[in-house]
Simulated assay, not measured.
Amino acid sequence: MKSTTPVNKPVQLRTDWTKEEIQAIYDLPLMELVYQAASVHRAYHPKNEIQISTLLSIKTGGCPEDCSYCGQAARYHTDIKVQRLLPTETVLAHAQKAKQAGSSRFCMAAAWREVRDNKDFDRVIDMVKGVNEIGLEVCCTLGMLTEDQAKRLQEAGLYAYNHNLDTSEKYYDQIISTRGFDNRINTINNVRKAGLTVCSGGIIGLGETTGDRVSMLLTLATMEKHPESVPINALARIKGTPLEDLPKVEIWDMVRMIATARIVLPKTMVRLSAGRIEMSEVEQAWCFMAGANSIFAGEEETLLVTPNPGLNKDMQMLNKLGLSPMILEKKPTCEAVE
């Protein structure tokens, strides 16, 4: 088995990783891998803080894409009900409730293929302004968007834009055919040009190889600027989608992925995302030790219409583990790149 030298503190931030280097880290003996990841985590982040994020689906279902894992694709017959764009007042009420419950980041998701310059987008702009005024980090995931649309969001107070790679470039067309991997990269580039922070990660358990997982991390770790946020998702097997019969992701695969992400993306927030509902507290604790420092939580809100643990239960777990919610000291802002 390949090995690598122990990570020293402080860890050098790099954008010149090779696939072989990342694969060697991923293949480390598990205890050594977690130790190295925990060391990197403490060099760059408060050791006992977890950011609580709330994700609200503001427009649900009816998406024309064919993402094989997604129950919101119009072509699949799932139990997810189509819901038009929520009223702005409803969204802001959810955001206020989330802040009072301990969230510092509020993410709004719309099941669109791409952003269109219409009244719905104007309403999203108003939502962003309102959530920003509440004092939360504001994040959106709305599909593909242009640089001008990204600038409008930035000017409204958006802090982050989520656009996941999902998997490796090589395996991508096995999962999605209605858009290409390059479309994902183009949107991320537009987000950067507008001065927004980037949230981009992927899903494991899609039938990919470990090499595909490493390749996805390689793409993120060799960007000119690392994404500020990387969600690591385990496939949520939704009845009616092409991937509904795939096996549950093993917890040690999640731990390896999180730990490897933490080492090659040391300053990034690594988000323990979809699939957490199927994890025990012990399994989640391993993910935190491996470098995850954010979770999605909420009572009514769901993680893109898949179940999410309740906030009270999460707070009890964090208390047991000696972890505390991250507190936003000041309202975050971004500045456009000149």
Rank of each mutant, 00 (worst) to 15 (best):
Q72F: 11
T268M: 05
K330A: 13
T141S: 11
G180E: 09
M127A: 07
E250I: 01
M317D: 08
M1Q: 14
N186C: 07
K170F: 06
F121E: 00
H41D: 14
A111S: 14
E133V: 13
L303F: 10
P307L: 07
A234R: 13
M31D: 13
P325I: 12
K9Y: 15
A156I: 02
G180T: 15
L145M: 15
C287N: 06
L55P: 01
R123D: 12
Q174I: 00
T78Q: 07
Y44V: 15
P10R: 10
A37L: 02
R105T: 10
G102K: 04
K81C: 05
Y26C: 03
K320F: 08
L311K: 10
T222A: 04
Q51Y: 05
E283L: 07
M326W: 10
T210M: 12
P64K: 03
T333E: 11
H226F: 09
C139P: 09
V198E: 06
E89V: 08
K248F: 12
K267M: 12
R14M: 13
P87M: 01
P242H: 04
L196V: 07
R113N: 03
I125Y: 00
E147M: 09
M31P: 01
E329A: 15
T88N: 10
M144C: 06
R271T: 11
P227H: 07
T333V: 10
V138I: 04
N162L: 15
L33P: 05
T187H: 04
K97Q: 14
L321T: 08
K193V: 05
A336E: 13
E335D: 06
C63V: 00
L311E: 04
R179V: 08
S177P: 02
I327K: 11
H163D: 06
Q316N: 12
R256M: 06
L196P: 09
F288K: 04
F296A: 09
N189Y: 10
T141N: 01
N190G: 02
G275H: 12
T302H: 08
E228W: 07
G310M: 13
E133M: 09
D79E: 06
A236Q: 14
M108V: 04
D173C: 02
Y159E: 09
Y172H: 11
K330P: 01
I263M: 04
K81H: 10
C67R: 10
L145S: 11
P10F: 11
V40N: 04
A43T: 08
R184E: 12
L321Y: 08
R42L: 13
E335C: 05
T210I: 11
T178Q: 02
K99S: 02
A109D: 10
Q96Y: 07
A285N: 12
E299W: 01
T54L: 08
A95E: 00
M1C: 11
L243G: 08
L218R: 09
S215M: 03
L165P: 00
K330W: 07
I238G: 05
I204S: 03
L246E: 02
K225W: 01
K9L: 15
K320H: 13
G135M: 04
N164H: 10
V191G: 05
L321Q: 11
M1D: 13
Q316I: 15
W286T: 03
N186Q: 15
I204D: 03
